[in-house]
Write a protein that binds this DNA or RNA. Structure first.
Lengths: 219, 219
DNA sequence: TAGATTGTTAATCGATTAACAATC
DNA sequence: TAGATTGTTAATCGATTAACAATC
């Protein structure tokens, strides 16, 4: 499942602590805040400032970062640019990550054109859809292939991750195919639990669930 | 919240236990699993079975449900239909909830047509977009109004919730307007922290963050 | 009654926060 | 040196799980 064995260059050799998933998510938040600070020409930032920007306790900021090394300078804070570089490397987003989208329905096609992924270094190479007889194209010019070409294209394009937005019934079967092709991460928009081998990560985005649990607090 | 009180205790505000957000999210999961069981004509389900369907410990299932009352029968399990009805009522989704979407860009327009919300009893009444001079329409026939009509339409349609998918810079300002109009829940797709009064709930859906934290586990 | 399963308490596990010596 | 802020330990808080008497 979630393992912490990462680049030895970052952790000290002995340090094989398991990093909680919550920490990893915050890493990504820090990276984004740092990006903003960079654009504001800030050279340093304290854990207090960074925490305030994100609504996170400063002790937690320090602790999270300390999992991965000593990035800060006592009495000074953290060097903005350097810290962000480190975080990107730790997260593995210091290089382009190739993504395929499976299921180009309404939501799928929107995700193909969604700018937020690209901004963080993800490149959506192509989409797949069952309904297609021949190759189509998204609004933003990304090719959408018939699902029959899944195997061929995924290998050809060396896809790392998949975004899954297909009907419930099709989700597990397609997941199995994707996993078989070496896809190691799945951003899953289908509201069912996917079975995957331990080395594959699935993050679920359950829009209806978010909405419904919001309703609980309606006055 | 008002649903949190137990029947054996004196009705005082102090008595109301605070329900953890994690519990509320699971309630929604239970509701969906129950829906599936109903369609399979199951009349009862045990905490063990329900837990297995969702990857949740059975003790947790029982504890979550017990927050809200005694729904189960020892030696038997939980009556499917009845439990689901109770959960929908507790969640507040036993009636139609009216939603407006603010920001009909790529993602926004897809959410307008996304079936998952409707399935849980949410009705997206309309969308708003800044770029429009006059009323347009989504693929699925939902009207999209120029942002100038926000005040008028939200009040007219008695909107409960908003889905926010606008550029970062516009998010806080529009949030303030929505809150001023009595919107009490926001499903926020904008990757910034929104300030809202205590009585307003915000759930953040951060797609880029989900993707980036996925990358951490790439082998 | 025998078997099953709840509701609940107690034990465990994990995550957050406070505090502070070490450091620049 | 004086002031600021880190990294880290200890304390707290909260959430999950195990266990079991009560109940059908």
């Amino acid at each position: 499942m979630s393992q912490a064995k990462r680049n030895d260059s970052i952790n000290s050799p002995i340090d094989q602590r398991k990093i909680p998933n919550a920490v990893v998510k915050r890493l990504s938040l820090y990276s984004r805040a740092l990006h903003q600070l960079e654009s504001e020409r800030a050279e340093k930032v304290s854990s207090t400032k960074l925490g305030e920007m994100l609504g996170i306790n400063s002790a937690q900021v320090r602790k999270d970062l300390a999992y991965f090394g000593q990035f800060g300078v006592p009495g000074f804070g953290y060097p903005v640019r350097q810290l962000r570089e480190n975080l990107k490397r730790i997260l593995g987003t210091d290089r382009e990550i190739r993504v395929a989208l499976v299921g180009a329905g309404n939501l799928g096609r929107a995700l193909l054109s969604y700018g937020g992924f690209r901004r963080e270094g993800f490149k959506i190479e192509c989409g797949f859809d069952k309904a297609l007889q021949e190759t189509a194209e998204s609004e933003s010019g990304i090719p959408i292939y018939p699902i029959e070409e899944l195997e061929r294209r995924i290998e050809e394009l060396q896809i790392d991750f998949a975004i899954l937005s297909v009907p419930n019934e099709a989700a597990q079967g397609l997941t199995d195919r994707l996993v078989g092709l070496g896809v190691s991460g799945i951003l899953n928009f289908v509201p069912i639990r996917l079975s995957v081998p331990d080395h594959v990560q699935v993050h679920n985005v359950d829009l209806a669930l978010e909405m419904e649990s919001l309703a609980y607090f309606l006055t």
